[in-house]
Design a protein around this nucleic acid. Structure first.
Ligand SMILES: [Zn+2]
Ligand SMILES: [Zn+2]
Ligand SMILES: [Zn+2]
Ligand SMILES: [Zn+2]
Lengths: 341, 341, 341, 341
DNA sequence: CCACATGTGTCTAGACATGTGA
DNA sequence: TCACATGTCTAGACACATGTGG
């Protein structure tokens, strides 16, 4: 499951890229089995670190821009509730913030409306969201850094977030005080969806002691970049990694009731454009468990729900909401199909 | 029914081995009747235990290789549905896994494409298939170990699998934490077939309590070996020993639909006829999981289902069926109530 | 904490026993430290096993009498809800049955109304309560017998129940098919109470596989005996040892609603006398957690409760119920005292 | 402030040791200024590590003896309240335990009744006091180990306790799983006192995360040794290193009231002045646990409390206090409602 | 083959433990 | 010293796994 194979199975893509080496890591393919994980990572690191970064990553004490920006290709990011992962997480639409435990894998969907004929990358950077700490780099606490599972590749150790995509490259040198970030190639969506889904996991909690996050709020910045490190889109996600997501969310909301949602964000916000909240509350898909007796009833219910969603989709035709309904609609359709077999 | 007699009726064997003592246990022949089962077993054990093992069996905490390998003589193994044994078993081609009850004898056919001019042995080892437990040795639970039928020879007691071939030797010392395995001489096929058939039986279930298998999945590794313990072929078989093979297989398949059938293993599929999915009991209540977006839709769905069941109840007023619908109706009503709070 | 010391500190006892060796285990005192646990147990066993048993314990296939009988000294037994033990247990007054998990220590209070001038012993025996199995002896399942904690003394291993009193002697030889029982010296109550409290624990579940209890219902018979094994009182307690005491109790009660409580017992019941249920439901003490603000209010509440219980005690002066209220009253009084310090 | 200078100002010592080289580290004196702290420490380490240890320190998984023992020279240890150090600490005579914050220097006085004519050393070892963890070695948490102040000599880093005596040697190799201990030469008392005072400091808290102490209770073992590592006296001190010594001590004492103060240890009580129990915040809601028998009594109690609070609320109508009572009132009302259902 | 018996794992609420900062 | 922030533990509810007996 290398980057190349992902890429080449995209037969429906109608633009041909002959001036671009589609297989970034082609030299790794041949001897992947003879290299240790760390050596592979090292190699990829050497390739990707040459992507120029736009200055915000090199000098310490700079503040990373967290202004959201769809960019020329319509970059969009959705965080989804994980299906069956160990710990669930919660989303506060009031605060536009996600709460989850560490080591909880959570999927993020990326998409662009138009795909340019060159390589795209997604860079994931964690920063402190309070202006007071925004210029400090976010590192893992020593405790987790030196006591993580031994299969963590060396480059990953100082990072507070990891991506399960095997082509992830962990960038930045903590010993030089550099800001850390991950970089993944922006794959092509599977047939039938516009989204590319990647799984992430946090490896430290917000409460990890200094020089870890030390109870400072963070946000994750997703930037769409080309091979030159040019920023082509940017999305931000407020996150709190803690042991009791539900409790802490409720507390946060109680404390902030009355204040404007995502308050801190606004003051750095220049676009004024419509912010697409990350999976807003009532549009977030939930599961309704209905006790059913008899196949005929089951089928009737499914049909009814299908109709219901059809209406929603049509009514929201020109609307981002439609996307959510379409996904649900597809699931229902699949269930109907399965039932009729 | 000694090893020799099996051997001598092999009239179609077209190579004669005169420089090989085909009768490994010849000294046992003469006084077999004056020896107890345990004494015979002890004797055979002393002979066969001298077959060097390749290290994977001696140290605890090693992981037994389960990579399939036909080897120089084209080793193949087939598991067959038994003719009339007490309990039947089922095979899932989707998962490449066999489901059977304990004490259910099942035949396994072994064959090689070319037979070398020296003794061959088949070693049967049970291991945990989940990597998490692969390095632990599989032992029988104390319950079955100390309560098996009294005619079980002593060496067999800690083994979870037995072979009905009387020349089977049970190897490995549980008290030393050694990995257990059986070893049988690879007999010559009967006239008219390429296969040598051996009957096996499991003596513990996957669900036997710790320190038994304790619900951990297992696989059986068949290795073809020469008298020096050199591995000349290897086959693996996923097995689940349980009381309700059919039920559990169906559940497994439902859970794993979509996932690849045991990627790292080659198929051992021979028996896999067309499977007829079992029709669900139509009055049995099942749970339909509906993805829902938006509270208004949820409410509408619930109301719809409530109406649906109302109809059923009225229609079945004088009918036992009504009872079922009433229960479901009550649940829905409760859900509506809860949702409106 | 030997038997003797318990005995001798009873200065308020007004009868002097000079013809009785008060220190049953006196010879053990001197060299207790040089003997292993098993040797001590062996020694005590040799002493106590000479207490003649009344025949019901020796021959297999006899049915142990479970008829309750207060006896000449007014033998009474109460099972109490444990304070802070790991797992709680529940009592069904409907079925007069206790439900608890294994390894859950539970206290039992023993008392007599008059204490005779000779040694008393309490024998604890577990039997199957269904007549169908009553003649079979209750043994531990091999699984737990051979996998219990290594500090279990040898004699204890085949027993399904253990007593935490260090002077407990485990009687009966499983290999001879003998019925197993425990025997403890009946100590003298601490000053200020009539009860002698002993802690027990079950070491197998009702559901342990054959030859364990194998889902057969059991009851525990407490018999008061003298040094000759003469029965001087008998109490029975229905118990179910399972993983989900609450669930199973509720199920049991649902199944048996309409049927007479402790149905099976009755048919062996000849006394017809008033059965003293083991801590009957509404008399069972529960804990009410009251949020309190201000010491004056706390004190007032406590005083009120004290008054309330005073009334109850007086009203039930000639009544067994008074005992329960007195205990609660004493606790409240202690709380008041503590608060005033 | 080397070991020698300490030694030479001991003018009141009445025994002269001319056959003993009193200056263990004499070779270090000359070039002390040209060596870095780590080099000096390394040197001392090489000298002192040759003191044979009595085996309890080498193998992991041994339990260090904590039995107190005055030994042939009347070894005594006193822990004293520090004069003006940053944070104070408290001592619970009830539990014979010291509570202090980390980085809080605390003096310990050592003395012997008779001083032998050879070198004496004091070894300080920290162990887990609960038997469950006693065989595990106590190490510093990675967080503090890798983030301590940079002037900590290398050998000190994994130790949870440090001694301000510059001649302290930090023994044990964490990477080998060895038990860590400090060793200081037992100096001679200053004029006018029998005691030798040494200052210690904890460098981790009991609550430091795994693989640190991870909330496990510890004790410090002081052993008096000769140059051969022979134990000549032993004292143990229960310690809890935490942020709120006073609070935690009070809690501990409340929880353990009634239980004997650390039975197996002799008292080290010297400082235990009169403790003034802290009056509880009278408006803070507490929970009163009332043993209740019978629903009618429960209801009556609840109603009484409700009335009580009603009065308080009305009386404090214009008062902030009312708020507190209202909350309690609501809880009681809910309890009444629940009880009546 | 089904209904049920019954253990196990997981999730969650709540109580508690314990650090932090005012 | 206190209120609070926040990790951890534990008991209960529940879904599920899986044996048993009809
Ligand atoms: Zn961390
Ligand atoms: Zn078994
Ligand atoms: Zn058992
Ligand atoms: Zn620490």
């Amino acid at each position: 499951m290398s980057f190349q194979s992902d890429l080449l199975c995209q037969e429906d893509q109608n633009y041909l890229l002959d001036n671009v080496d589609l297989n970034l890591f082609s030299d790794l393919q041949s001897n992947e089995e003879t290299l240790s994980m760390d050596e592979i990572q090292e190699h990829k690191f050497n390739i990707l670190k040459n992507i120029p970064t736009n200055g915000e990553y090199n000098g310490a004490k700079t503040i990373l821009c967290n202004e959201e920006y769809n960019g020329p290709f319509g970059f969009e990011v959705d965080v989804l509730r994980p299906n069956g992962s160990k710990n669930s997480w919660v989303y506060s639409s009031l605060l536009n913030k996600v709460y989850m435990d560490m080591k909880c894998p959570f999927p993020v969907d990326f998409r662009v409306t138009t795909r340019p004929p060159f390589h795209l990358f997604i860079r994931i950077t964690t920063t402190y969201s309070s202006p007071q700490f925004a210029q400090e780099c976010v590192y893992r606490c020593p405790n987790h850094e030196f006591n993580g599972s031994p299969n963590e590749p060396l480059h990953m150790k100082p990072h507070v977030i990891k991506c399960n995509n095997p082509d992830t490259v962990y960038l930045g040198d903590k010993t030089q005080g550099e800001r850390l970030s991950l970089c993944i190639p922006f794959a092509y969506p599977q047939t039938g969806t516009d989204n590319v889904r990647e799984m992430f996991e946090f490896l430290c909690k917000n409460s990890c002691p200094s020089p870890g996050m030390n109870r400072r709020a963070i946000e994750v910045i997703f930037t769409l970049e080309d091979a030159n490190g040019e920023t082509l889109g940017r999305k931000a996600l407020n996150v709190r990694v803690c042991s009791c997501p539900k409790r802490d969310k409720e507390k946060d909301e109680k404390d902030n009731s009355g204040k404007p949602p995502q308050g801190k964000k606004r003051k750095m916000d220049k676009t004024g454009g419509k912010r697409v909240p990350v999976a807003p509350n009532d549009l977030q898909e939930t599961i309704l468990k209905i006790p059913v007796i008899g196949k005929h009833n089951k089928d009737q219910i499914l049909k009814y729900v299908q109709d219901l969603y059809s209406g929603e989709i049509l009514r929201h035709e020109n609307d981002a909401e439609a996307e959510h309904y379409k996904r649900a609609f597809n699931k229902i359709t699949a269930m109907i199909k399965e039932s009729s077999e």
